[in-house]
Design a binder for these strands. Structure first.
Lengths: 209, 209
DNA sequence: TCAATTTTGTTATTTATTGAACACTATTCA
DNA sequence: TGAATAGTGTTCAATAAATAACAAAATTGA
């Protein structure tokens, strides 16, 4: 299987989540236009995404929800599972821990890191919080391959370095400072301030018309 | 001024943030390749973004930091300012409040909403927390035009309806449920689970090579 | 003073992503 | 039984975004 387009990967993740809800409601089959409606995109887009992962539906019945969910899992997930660490257990870190915990069986948050004396040693939602100084050891010990960075911006750079050195393969950066990682580490950055300023800009524009 | 490309708007917001840091360090001029390095993009991209907003630098001196910041402000910001509301004062809501508070003078978080009895009536970081039932009134009273949604997914849909009805022009949706808003409201959605699954997928792929 | 260099502004090309078009077939229903 | 319909799979066209290419001008330094 060749590497899928970025956007297709994002949509597959979203399809899966909603397909699971449909399955929970007892739906066994679903049409491309139903999936499209949920996500506010076109049915063509849905069909093509599904084509790209090599699944094929039944004519006039649509796609088998269960099979599709399973296949998306085979594509997106690593079968042995992947462990995730959250660096920075502030409000954002806690929000993420709550969000993810026990949601996905192939993706589990195995550790959080912080510097605050009161947090270190405790648990949140069953996730142990370690001191940042132990990052290298814990990441290797727990076989963690993905790091989520929600530290204050001042320590963003050193955090990325530490994660790379510890050997993670993917980083999700929530600080506003762009990171610099080697080619063999996948980096995804998200900046809340930018998002808000973007909404503000387009809301303003909208108003001017 | 015609409406700028999506991605250019995002980058302008990021340029500005880093330009302010440069300005703070006493830098008066900056080259396109310096900006590019900070953001890990090409100098051409930077120059074209700047071209699109109609600014022009000095040959061999680069761009005047102060002027550029001012111009980006004129493009992105609404001169009278815009007020923002956060709906859902859980961990994520608090993270956002902390993040933004007093960062931008033209964009201010004027209210937060929640249902929890203990939170309602209190303040966080100087931002008053109201009961969701008062959303319509407060949004109109305080002239709020942008809503950030960080409520539990189950109430995402009703929240979007309430915001639209209250007359906001832009919504930033942090719940994983896609929203449905009329054409005259700008909607930006961000889904953390998708981001993490995307990182996990590409980290996996990376590893397989 | 005048070639060399640096860095901008802009156009042209390429690549990525989305959307439109359409052929094909299982089912429906007259 | 045999048109009509609904919905898939796929190719082709349009749009959006990023990169490459290059002309023009200010500065440098011989």
């Amino acid at each position: 299987m060749n590497t899928l387009p970025d956007k297709t990967v994002e949509r597959l993740s979203q399809y899966r989540r909603n397909l699971l809800i449909c399955k929970g409601k007892g739906k066994t089959h679903i049409f491309s236009h139903e999936i499209a409606n949920i996500h506010h995109i076109t049915p063509v887009q849905v069909r093509r995404d599904i084509m790209l992962i090599g699944y094929t539906g039944t004519l006039r019945k649509g796609y088998n929800v269960e099979e599709l969910v399973t296949l998306i899992g085979e594509i997106l997930d690593k079968q042995e599972g992947q462990n995730v660490a959250i660096v920075g257990a502030g409000n954002l870190g806690h929000a993420i821990m709550k969000y993810f915990h026990d949601r996905r069986d192939k993706l589990s948050i195995a550790a959080a890191f912080d510097t605050s004396e009161e947090k270190v040693g405790s648990e949140f939602d069953g996730i142990p919080i370690y001191h940042i100084d132990d990052l290298q050891t814990v990441i290797k010990e727990k076989n963690i391959s993905i790091g989520i960075v929600s530290v204050p911006v001042e320590v963003a750079e050193e955090t990325s370095k530490a994660l790379v050195e510890a050997g993670v393969l993917g980083i999700l950066n929530y600080t506003p400072r762009p990171m610099n990682v080697p080619d063999n580490v996948y980096l995804e950055e998200y900046d809340m301030i930018t998002s808000l300023e973007k909404v503000a800009y387009f809301a303003k524009i909208m108003n001017e018309k």
